[in-house]
């Protein structure tokens, strides 16, 4: 005897539905949360390193050494900030490279990689005057795009960096080091303090 209607497929097993429900909860939580592990103390550490670098760079006899000081400071600041962000994420039980954290990193990275490549090209060509403005502009771009997945104050900081970058591109040579100090030092210190106070460290 042939059934009048085809036998429906078996409903999903209970444990499959439970897994699906847990996956839905996890994905909703990930998309609902900002990447709040951004560390105000990390920003402050970057600001302090940048102010030290500005003082040291101002004493350099030539532009190559000036550039080397700032590149060294950038690497040191990155490591310092990354360690403090990882510590905050661990303390707050927040996933570092899942959900919003991953999106923030993936959005922040392209302008920074572009800046590194352009720095290499411009310094090889001997046209380093544009580098401070370029760094401030591209860093600001990265902070705005990455900050879209993080705390609300970050895109504001990114916009301030972009304004300083635009100013640096048209400002005379003697302004470049103070503008770098104001951006990478001052903005990091100021916004870092706000983030540390509002978002728990």
């Amino acid at each position: 005897m042939r059934p009048l209607r085809p036998v429906p497929d078996e409903p999903p097993a209970l444990h499959e539905r439970a897994i699906d429900n847990l996956r839905f909860i996890r994905e909703t939580m990930e998309s609902a949360t900002s990447f709040t592990a951004v560390s105000g103390l990390g920003e402050i550490s970057m600001g302090v390193i940048a102010l030290g670098a500005a003082a040291l760079a101002a004493r350099q006899p030539n532009v190559e050494r000036w550039l080397a000081v700032w590149i060294g400071a950038a690497v040191l600041a990155f490591v310092s900030c990354a360690l403090l962000v990882a510590r905050k994420a661990r303390t707050a039980h927040l996933p570092l490279l899942a959900g919003p954290g991953r999106k923030a990193v993936l959005s922040f990275a392209p302008p920074i990689i572009t800046g590194a490549l352009l720095t290499a090209i411009l310094s090889r060509a001997g046209t380093v005057e544009a580098i401070p403005g370029l760094w401030l502009l591209l860093y600001g771009t990265g902070v705005i795009t990455g900050g879209a997945f993080s705390v609300r104050v970050l895109p504001v900081m990114g916009f301030c960096f972009m304004l300083l970058g635009a100013l640096a591109l048209v400002a005379p040579g003697e302004w470049q080091n103070p503008l770098m100090a104001l951006g990478f030092g001052g903005l990091h210190l100021g916004f870092g303090a706000v983030i540390a106070r509002r978002y728990g460290g």
């Binding site: 897994i19 909860i25 996933p95 899942a98």
Partner: peptide
Amino acid sequence: LARATETGL
């Protein structure tokens, strides 16, 4: 979030 992420599946 950590719980839903780590033990969820």
